[in-house]
Write a protein that binds this DNA or RNA. Structure first.
Length: 385
RNA sequence: CUUGUCAGGAC
């Protein structure tokens, strides 16, 4: 039976609900008697199917076979209703439990609290928390985290903080979940300094900060267009032995590019390569566009050469950035040779780049050159629009 | 071997 239960649970987790019933039938056929675990797993299967009537039918059948729903069964049902936002039904189950002599436990309360939080009823969740404590339950880390998360999602950070302290005072050390929830709360409100201070405080309490929190913060700072702040955090945590990831480097480089700090961006790119990460097309695109925008097209071109050496193929955005860059700098020969290069080597025919080059020739009154260009391009199979 | 802590799911 335990083997079957294990299998059923696996099927449930991989969302193969139909298979569950096949297994259940098969069990009957070969004479394996289901136990409470079996029924509880199947209850979950039905809950996920989303048919309330079927659940009731099944519970009756369970009853016929001599199994009374236990606290796990009820908690499963409560959770299912909570996830669907049907809080009335969830509380109804909670009342039924008492009536049937199955008293709710910590899990029941936590589940209900989470359901209330999800519907934005955090205040009521907190009241339920108090009621639970008054009934003699000792909240555990999950109970605290659920409520803290509810407050954080509403941006009620002062309440979250006071729960955090309540939690620590009751002898529970916050974990990675707690940390992550609170940090996300601050970041969503744009309060990065509070987030950083919280990390310091948690460290002082002896909480291990999960490394991906730093990653998250750095990326969030980048997306807020604060690459310098992101970089200084990055440097600080690198000293703690935190290994910078490909994603973090990419994000930092992109952010500095957007900030027109081409120097810092390219330093980071070199550092990234040294650490064994290969910048991708998006990163090169950002770098090249940034250099071109700042009138440093020659450097942009050598970046493109790096990129090609590393096995990446330039796209039309890169082509456009370079051609426009050289046009703006007045180096039309270079622009033209690049246009040829992209067409010949990469079969990249970017009409927009082509047009801007023609336009520059025409603006200079050099119509002859413009026609010569068209001849050359036609020979390469590059047709104007 | 079964229930609770970001999300738990798409036009």
């Amino acid at each position: 039976v335990t083997v079957c239960n294990c299998l059923l649970n696996g099927l449930l987790k991989s969302n193969q609900l139909d298979c569950c019933w096949e297994i259940y039938d098969e069990m009957g056929r070969i004479g394996i008697f289901p136990n409470t675990y079996t029924f509880n797993i199947l209850t979950r299967v039905l809950c996920r199917d989303g048919d309330a009537n079927k659940v009731n039918v099944f519970l009756e059948k369970m009853d016929e076979e001599g199994f009374d729903p236990d606290v796990v069964t009820y908690n499963t049902l409560i959770d299912s209703y909570c996830r669907k936002g049907r809080m009335d039904d969830a509380f109804y189950m909670y009342k039924i439990m008492y009536r049937r002599g199955v008293p709710p436990d910590l899990v029941s309360y936590t589940t209900l609290m989470k359901g209330l939080c999800k519907g934005g009823r955090v205040k009521e969740a907190h009241q339920l928390f108090h009621r639970m404590v008054n009934r003699g339950f000792i909240p555990d880390i999950i109970a605290f985290n659920s409520l803290i998360s509810g407050y954080c999602r509403q941006g009620k950070m002062q309440e979250s903080r006071s729960l955090l302290h309540e939690m620590i005072q009751s002898g529970i050390l916050p974990d990675g979940f707690t940390c992550r929830t609170l940090i996300e709360g601050y970041v969503n409100g744009g309060r990065f300094l509070y987030a950083l201070n919280l990390i310091m405080e948690l460290k002082r309490w002896g909480v291990l900060i999960p490394p991906d929190i730093y990653c998250y913060l750095i990326m969030a700072l980048c997306q807020e267009n604060r690459p310098n702040a992101a970089l200084s955090l990055f440097r600080r945590v690198s000293q703690d032995g935190y290994n910078p990831s490909f994603e973090v480097y990419s994000e930092l480089i992109g952010s500095f590019c957007k900030y027109d700090n081409s120097l810092q961006a390219s330093l980071l790119k070199d550092e990234m390569v040294c650490k064994g990460h290969k910048p991708d097309l998006v990163t090169y695109r950002a770098l090249i566009a940034c250099f071109c925008r700042l009138g440093k097209s020659a450097e942009a071109e050598s970046l493109m050469d790096n990129m090609v050496d590393s096995g990446l193929v330039p796209d039309s955005l890169i082509c456009r950035a370079l051609i426009n860059g050289f046009c703006k700098e007045g180096d039309l020969d270079k622009a033209e040779s690049l246009l040829t290069y992209f067409a010949e080597v990469f079969h990249l025919y970017d009409t927009e780049s082509y047009n801007s080059l023609i336009q520059v020739f025409c603006e200079k009154g050099d119509v002859t050159k413009s026609f010569e260009l068209q001849d050359k391009m036609l020979k390469l199979g590059f047709v104007p629009n």
